[in-house]
Amino acid sequence: MSDPNEPPPYQPGPAPAAGAPLSAADDKLWASLAHFGNIILLVPALIIYLVFKDRGPLVNQESKEALNWTINVTGVIVIVNILSAILGVIPILGFVLGLLLTLVWVAVLIVNLVFAIIGGVRVNGGGTYRYPFNYRWIK
């Protein structure tokens, strides 16, 4: 027999549903993280888009924008790497072109870093961000 003065055992409440709508603060958080995730290219924006796109309007819009940008940046990085590998077999000209392609590669990564930070800060501040020169693969 249990003591009547003893509190009842802990009963956890219902867990939130996996597809439950996000609060406004969480919506803004995940939207800004989609932009900040672009610093390490494709994977974070893709995961945030796939998991949260139907749970909040801001995260849907901003993760789609961030994903479109990082698809473009990743494509340019892959193309530059392939061209560097192909042109690397040419003796002197290949070295010069490889050096130029390395500079392009570094410039693309720096531009991506700057735009990802600007996008994340703007969204975290309550606004929206559209990347310049962004071909939108996902409409």
Rank of each mutant, 00 (worst) to 15 (best):
D27H: 11
W30S: 00
I82A: 14
P132Q: 04
E62T: 05
P7K: 09
G125D: 13
P7S: 02
V59S: 07
G126F: 04
L99C: 12
W30Q: 06
P9D: 12
L100Y: 04
L113P: 00
G125Q: 14
P44N: 12
M1R: 04
G127A: 13
Y129A: 01
L29D: 02
I47M: 11
V80P: 01
L22F: 12
K139W: 00
D26N: 13
N124H: 14
F52K: 15
A116T: 11
V59G: 03
V78Q: 02
R55C: 10
H35Q: 06
Y131A: 03
G120T: 07
L83M: 12
L100K: 02
L33M: 14
D26Y: 03
A24S: 14
A45Q: 13
T128H: 12
K64C: 11
V121G: 03
N134H: 01
L46I: 10
I39V: 15
P12W: 10
F95H: 03
A107W: 08
L83K: 03
A85L: 15
T70G: 04
A20I: 11
A31N: 05
L97F: 14
L103G: 15
F36Q: 08
P57I: 08
G88T: 06
G94H: 06
N60W: 00
P8M: 13
K53D: 04
K53L: 01
L113R: 01
P7W: 06
I82D: 07
P7L: 11
V78P: 03
P4I: 11
A15I: 07
W137M: 13
L101C: 11
D26C: 00
T70H: 13
N134T: 13
A116P: 03
I138F: 11
K64Y: 00
T102F: 15
N60A: 14
R130E: 12
N5E: 12
I77S: 06
L67P: 07
L42C: 03
I40C: 12
I138A: 08
T102A: 08
S23I: 09
V80W: 01
S84R: 14
G98W: 04
A45M: 06
N5A: 14
I39M: 05
T70S: 13
F52H: 14
K64W: 02
L41N: 09
Y49G: 02
E6D: 12
G126L: 04
I117V: 15
V96Y: 02
H35C: 08
G37L: 05
